[in-house]
Design a protein around this nucleic acid. Structure first.
Length: 228
DNA sequence: GCTAGGATGCTCT
DNA sequence: GAGCATCCTAGCC
């Protein structure tokens, strides 16, 4: 992505649905998610999350994701097998998995292949496109960068909760729509954020230099903190 | 602008 | 009871 086409710069201030059709394409089908989790995480960059309910449309372009490789990944919720909490994580590709993090924040995922393996892509950051007023109200801030620059923040801004878990990203009210294809040069690949195991696996994908990512380009995992 | 540390409450052992 | 896929803010430079 060149500087002259900074992701979303031209569309960031669109306030209503008038130009929506130019902002996103059709909902990504289940077959999109029925692939390797790292491939899906990479290709979700540039796609648009759309929440259309209660007469209000909210949308944001995905600018950061992380892949969690199911039962094979010690950092994944699926590593210890299926539990009541992770039931939706073992759903079919395209299933919505929303869990509560640190007892405070909701975090949204898209389940991928292989089926019933617990692989999923965590949505880590979005660039708000539509419904900014509602997102500002929900987040309690006027800082546009604080609306979606983190998994808990974007879930709050879009109103995603555990009630949405188990649904499908392939049909309303929650959908992920096709976006522009990102050049490899525009994609930053780094280790994942905020985990204590498998910290060197390069499964975090972000739009290089984008202002709305959660940690910026300079992210490196820190050495483990000594416990209290 | 950056960093360290505390708050939070759910889940699992 | 320990650990945690996070966030916010005070304090520092």
């Amino acid at each position: 992505m060149s500087r002259s086409r900074r992701p979303g710069a031209a569309n960031a201030a669109v306030p209503s649905g008038r130009r929506r059709s130019s902002l996103w394409g059709a909902a990504l089908p289940a077959a999109f998610y029925d692939r390797d989790v790292a491939v899906v995480a990479r290709e979700l960059l540039g796609a648009v999350v759309v929440v259309d309910r209660e007469g209000t449309v909210l949308a944001g372009r995905i600018v950061e994701t992380e892949a969690y490789a199911g039962r094979d990944d010690p950092a994944s919720h699926a590593y210890r097998g299926e539990t009541p909490r992770t039931r939706d994580l073992f759903g079919a590709p395209g299933t919505i998995y929303v869990y509560r993090s640190y007892g405070v924040h909701w975090c949204a995922n898209a389940v991928t292949a292989p089926h019933r393996h617990g692989s999923a892509v965590l949505l880590r950051a979005i660039e708000p496109l539509v419904g900014l007023d509602r997102m500002h109200t929900r987040r309690g801030t006027r800082d546009v960068r604080a609306l979606g620059s983190g998994p808990g923040k974007l879930s709050e801004a879009l109103g995603l909760t555990g009630d949405d878990s188990g649904g499908r990203w392939t049909r309303g009210p929650l959908t992920i729509r096709r976006g522009p294809v990102m050049d490899d040069a525009a994609v930053l690949v780094t280790p994942r954020v905020g985990i204590s195991v498998a910290v060197d696996w390069p499964l975090r994908f972000a739009v290089r230099g984008h202002a709305h990512t959660s940690r910026g380009d300079g992210w490196r995992p820190l050495p483990p903190r000594p416990r209290k």
